[in-house]
Design a protein around this nucleic acid. Structure first.
Lengths: 414, 414
DNA sequence: GATTTTTTTCTCGACAGTCGAGAAATTTAC
DNA sequence: GTAAATTTCTCGACTGTCGAGAAAAAAATC
């Protein structure tokens, strides 16, 4: 409320609103936009006329008229209005996707990540090459790429695209903004991977529940532990954050974590930690850099057959997660928790520990156990989260940059 | 962004903006308002004319002109525009304050709270009587009371004025909305006490640092433990919350807390917990209902003289606080922590434990120790927080209700 | 095939809000 | 007494939204 308002701002907001509903519901007719936005028909006319003149949306060609009356003309985003590159960094590969303004996937490939530790600088070079490659494969002009949206596990600066800490590079910070500035005019954004999962799930949930949706947490189980939280703000938007959950303190002076601290949640619930407990390796052993999934599958199999120590390892992981989640819930409101990631394949073994860990706290005793649900297809959710956020950013930027472009040959009156 | 914008909304927001700057900086002239709000002079004229017509603000009488040129006419809130009653519930008393629309204290008294446990229903009756008393003492019309702002320790529903859990009444919920509806047309709001402290400190901090202020936490030490967090939102407002920090899980299966759960932070850092540790009473002993401060002072004195167990009790309290704060910081961004409440008198004994507890976590190792500062005068901060929030709510309500009231005798043209 | 009905889109005038520029008011300086 | 300085107020231009009704276009009906 610290900043003034003006009529131009009104137009900007309403323009963004129109573009957002177009995103949400696909191509719409004039009347439908009016219904969804609660803007008057006249206002919709004015706004869509502007957007059309600025080459941001277009009338789709004649529909085979369904029903009588004047046939609808659908409005949709112009695909060639701009492009988006999505970069998903995971522990063993980097995936590049080229997407047009309508959200349609145009091209995609993955590049294996070498596991060499000499790290950050080399890695950035690789990303720059990857970006060049996807651009050149497409024949799209460089200037038409409006946004590069990157995601990674780890801790991300909330205002700038800087990877502050990651399981891969540790405290070797990566500033994507300055790394890509020489090559690209496009804006660069960086988000935590689980944050995007939460964003995607929040959007889905709101589509189902509407205004009843309040908040939701996504917990990603894997080599490392991620948490994303999404909350509806007072004015209808979504506020989304990715706290440093995996390295929240679970137990003072506890097991040694990859990050070098003792007692992090990850030091009990990460894959390497489960391995460590299952093999009864001392808790202050420096953890393995990478754990093959097959190794964990074996432990899980043994646990399911009743092997005590193996079962204990998963139970202890669950306890750490449950305690951590209860602490999170003490600091927020009650919200459902969606569990995702490769680790969900061990959910049968983790569940009891998680619920016990949750049950040990005041919040859960008072408000009851939060809803726990397992959600598969983390990869799809990550991409969906990218699109949600990135395209919204593009819409906003385009409108704010000014919707006056286009062919200025309106100067022939009569 | 889900909701449409309109020109009326623009006027509303800008009117609220004008009232807010008037709150912040005291009586201001036309030009000064224009400077602070960045609204044009013409707009300020239009808005202030409306507000004046609606009897919300008034021109102050002639100032002794300082400097040459046409003398300024200061605008200020009309005191009699409406009134606010502030109710501060503490463990041993309830304080009632009557405040006019300009924020000036008109009347105040406290009523001792009987320590009888028969609780909630009786207590509510007491509050209703207290409100009647402060009204009748003042000769103000009941309808002129626009807002009743209540605060208490404990857990508060974020949307409705319902006390969900409190150290005094436990889980006996109190719904102030429905309790006061029969007597009062005024709106009723309820906030956690430490939330108000955080709000007040946040406002002060922003006055000093301006846009550099990002966030801040207030930790209140006393019989129970309170935490308030204030953050600047993207559009310049303040987002403030009071998580259930005192009953966040400190240690699974730990000491028994007043709330009936085991291992809460309060079960280590509350006054009764310090007492329990100092006297080597078993950790599962049901805690004392109320601890005289003199008792704690004695333990503190012994600790300062080197008595081992007494010192250990404070150290352990500090550790619980430090661990808890580190967990909070894992879920938020780095922020300074202001420590307040009666317990600050033992800060010399707590400090080492707090810092050690903080230091055991990944965040603090990475980002460094957060700034810790001791802030006295918690009572003043609570009241200040009440005024900040309540008067802002009143301004908003008045403007939204419509600024068209007042004398409609403008119908004589020429 | 002409007319009516239905549905959608577009246009016009009214109204609300902000802004810049300059007029009006009013005091101090010389 | 006049000029300069400073503050407040007013006017016209511009931008925005809205409701109502005109215009467009296809299906239904006679």
């Amino acid at each position: 409320m610290l900043t003034k308002s003006s009529t131009e701002l009104v137009r900007q907001r309403n323009s963004v609103l129109v573009l957002a509903t177009l995103r949400r519901h696909g191509p719409l007719a004039h009347t439908e936009i009016s219904d969804h936005t609660r803007l008057s028909s006249a206002t919709v006319s004015a706004i869509t006329a502007d957007l059309e003149r600025a080459q941001i949306i277009e009338k789709s060609e004649q529909q085979p008229a369904s029903g009588r009356g004047r046939p609808r003309v659908l409005l949709r985003q112009r695909r060639d209005c701009g492009y988006l590159i999505v970069v998903i960094i995971s522990s063993d590969a980097v995936q590049y996707s080229l997407v047009d303004y309508s959200g349609k996937l145009i091209d995609r490939f993955s590049e294996e990540r070498s596991h060499d530790p000499d790290g950050a600088a080399r890695f950035v070079t690789g990303v720059r090459e990857g970006l060049e490659r996807i651009l050149s494969r497409s024949r799209i002009e460089r200037e038409k790429v409006l946004l590069i949206s990157i995601s990674s596990k780890g801790l991300v600066n909330s205002s700038e695209p800087v990877l502050v800490w990651s399981p891969i590079f540790g405290s070797d910070q990566i500033d994507f903004e300055s790394a890509l500035k020489p090559d690209w005019k496009a804006k660069v954004i960086l988000d935590n991977e689980t944050l995007l999962v939460a964003a995607a799930l929040g959007a889905r949930e709101e589509n189902v529940k509407g205004a009843d949706f309040r908040s939701l947490a996504a917990l990603s189980l894997g080599h490392s532990i991620g948490l994303g939280i999404v909350r509806r703000t007072s004015h209808g938007g979504h506020d989304v954050s990715a706290p440093n959950f995996g390295h929240m303190l679970h137990m003072a002076n506890g097991g040694l974590c990859r990050c070098g601290t003792r007692g992090c949640i990850e030091a009990y619930a990460g894959f390497y930690a489960i391995l460590r407990t299952a093999f009864e390796v001392p808790l202050d052993t420096i953890p393995a850099k990478f754990v093959p999934l097959a190794e964990l599958d074996k432990i899980a199999a043994r646990a399911r057959q009743g092997h005590r120590i193996s079962g204990f390892a998963f139970r202890q992981a669950g306890l750490a997660l449950g305690n951590g989640l209860s602490r999170m819930l003490s600091l927020t409101e009650r919200m459902p928790i969606a569990i995702t990631g490769v680790g969900t394949r061990y959910y049968d073994l983790l569940r009891q520990g998680i619920e016990e860990g949750l049950g040990q706290s005041h919040v859960v005793r008072m408000e009851g156990m939060p809803e726990l649900r397992v959600v598969a297809d983390e990869q799809i959710l990550v991409f969906e989260g990218h699109l949600n956020r990135a395209l919204a950013v593009i819409d906003e930027d385009i409108v704010v940059a000014g919707v006056q472009g286009g062919t200025e040959d309106v100067s022939v009156p009569k």
